[in-house]
Design a protein around this nucleic acid. Structure first.
Length: 483
RNA sequence: GGGGCAAUAACUCAGUUGGUAGAGUAACGGCCUUUUAAGCCGUGAGUCGGGAGUUCGAAUCUCCCUUGCCCUACCA
């Protein structure tokens, strides 16, 4: 049957309800308890009157009596009504109910002889009519495209999807309370920026009419947050969206949620410990243990995570000595390994690392001490002769979950780095960091020694919900509009 | 951007070597007052993603397009 024919049937029922004086879209229905309360505290509720509400998920008619399952935010209860108790007139009205309708039920709690917790209805009224047929109950909604485009249907039909976003909420709440507990202050900085900075990525561009200026959706809040450290805050964080004008993949959505925190008088070593603590606590809170299964792999969160330097990882997984091997040698090796050798040298290194090293980082690990060329905002490591920065990235389940470093606070050095980036930009590197004079000025006023950390909330949620694709942890992932 | 796979009823899916489209669920009608993937009897339901081609004949073969998924590239 065509969709509109099915909807027409429902519209006719709606009309009949109105004819009978029943409002098919109510303003209010006060419940006395939730369905999970009825289920969990059955003994206290047994034989007592309750008022509950929910969406009809299935109906079993038996002539002069009817069973239906109703579902609310997190639970399901059977409702039962019979001709005897509701009367002929009401029973006829109830024939006009459909799967998908929201109803309010007043009745008494009991158990059927098969042991099912049930509410026998004294009064039962439609709260909201559902005009479109719901997907079928047994197989739920499988079609991936419909699940993303009409996420509400996915949530109605697939309970485990609701759980994923519940976990996401727990992660964000848990993170905020962890940070607040450690005296961090939540701040908000511009999402629309005249100059996009703080990361190496392509921005979205937009326009402000009154000022007649182009603005960029932020690729990161980093530079603004550091200005606040200059201003005298010592522990701050921002937990919100970033936007990057890039392709999508199972690990990338153009808008994604990031935690960034800055901590004055700390360095990246302090932050590694802080990150361990925060992750370990979040895992415990959301999973109830210090273990997670991600894509069939068991991941344990020890008190102290493994650490490996970028150079060590290169040696171990790519067979390349980044400190000693010449650029020519490395390019040759890259070509042998199937990595595009025409790219700029640092991109080749990055590609090699992603292809050969990252897949091995299943258990929690910090990769530390990156080459300076890949990190224009990080402070150089003492004694590294300007080659290496104090930076780390946490990896778990082969997912890159964040990025952190001791912040570069020398305005002269920062300007030099920006100029180098500008040269790369002139050579066609669209992602090179633009020179931000305002930021340099801020640094000239003096930013205390500071460490900064960014955590990808979406990827962390993937890890803790065993999701393969980032689209499964974003309620409305970006899709091409339907033709 | 490149490659692979997919799209059939509202939902979940079958559909053989090319021969005029099928099931279950949902819907509608009937029977049924403790069922639970209720059951039984009956009815209706389709631009086979879109377009072109090959053919006497296309859901099926070819090409183009659309959308999605996976891989890859780009991207911390």
């Amino acid at each position: 049957m065509k969709r509109d024919e099915l909807s027409k049937v429902r519209e006719e029922k709606l009309n009949k309800l109105e004819e009978k004086g029943v409002e098919p879209f109510s303003n209010k229905f006060s419940i006395s308890c939730s369905l999970s309360q009825v289920n969990q505290q059955f003994k206290e509720f047994e034989g007592k009157p309750v008022k509950v509400a929910g969406r009809i998920m299935s109906v079993r008619e038996h002539g002069k009596s009817t069973f239906m399952d109703i579902q609310d935010k997190d639970s399901k209860v059977q409702v039962y009504y019979k001709l005897d108790t509701v009367g002929q007139e009401t029973y006829e009205i109830l024939q006009l109910l459909d799967i998908g309708d929201h109803i309010g039920v007043s009745g008494e709690v009991f158990k059927t002889r098969t042991g099912e917790i049930t509410i026998v209805a004294k009064e039962l009224l439609p709260l909201t009519k559902c005009l479109n047929p719901l997907p079928q109950k047994w197989y739920g909604l499988q079609d991936v495209e419909t699940r993303y485009r009409q996420r509400y249907l996915d949530l109605v039909m697939n309970g485990e999807v609701k759980d994923i976003f519940l976990t996401r909420s727990k992660i964000i709440t848990g993170m905020r309370s962890f940070l607040n507990k450690h005296s961090f202050i939540e701040v908000e900085t511009p999402m629309m920026q005249p100059l996009p900075g703080g990361a190496l990525a392509k921005p979205f561009i937009t326009h402000h009419n009154a000022l007649d200026i182009d603005l960029y959706l932020r690729i990161a809040p980093e530079l603004y947050l550091k200005k606040l450290i200059v201003g005298g805050y010592e522990k701050i964080y921002e937990l919100n969206r970033n936007f990057r004008n890039e392709g999508t993949s199972t690990r990338h959505n153009p808008e994604f949620t990031m935690l960034e925190l800055y901590w004055a008088y700390a360095d990246y070593e302090d932050l590694m410990e802080f990150t361990e603590q925060m992750f370990n606590e979040l895992v415990k809170e959301t999973k109830g243990s210090n273990e997670v299964i991600y894509q069939s792999q068991k991941i344990s969160f020890p008190e102290k995570w493994e650490r490996i330097t970028y150079a060590e990882a290169f040696k171990k997984y790519c067979g390349i000595d980044v400190e000693k091997d010449s650029e020519e040698q490395i390019r040759k090796e890259a070509k042998k390994k199937g990595v595009d050798a025409d790219d700029s040298f640092w991109h080749i290194l990055d590609s090699l690392f992603k292809k050969f090293a990252i897949p091995n980082f299943i258990q929690p690990i910090f990769v530390t001490d990156f080459p300076i060329e890949l990190s224009p905002l990080a402070k150089e490591k003492k004694g590294s002769e300007g080659k290496i920065v104090e930076r780390f990235q946490p990896f778990i389940g082969a997912l890159e979950l964040g990025n952190a470093y001791t912040e570069l606070n020398d305005p002269r050095e920062q300007e030099k780095r920006f100029k180098k980036q500008t040269q790369m930009r002139d050579k066609g590197d669209e992602e090179a960091h633009p020179l931000d004079k305002d930021f340099i000025t801020a640094l000239e006023y003096g930013m205390p020694p500071t460490a900064g950390l960014g955590i990808g909330i979406d990827r962390l949620t993937m890890l803790l919900t065993d999701s393969k694709s980032i689209r499964d942890v974003i309620l409305f992932p970006l899709l091409r509009p339907e033709a």
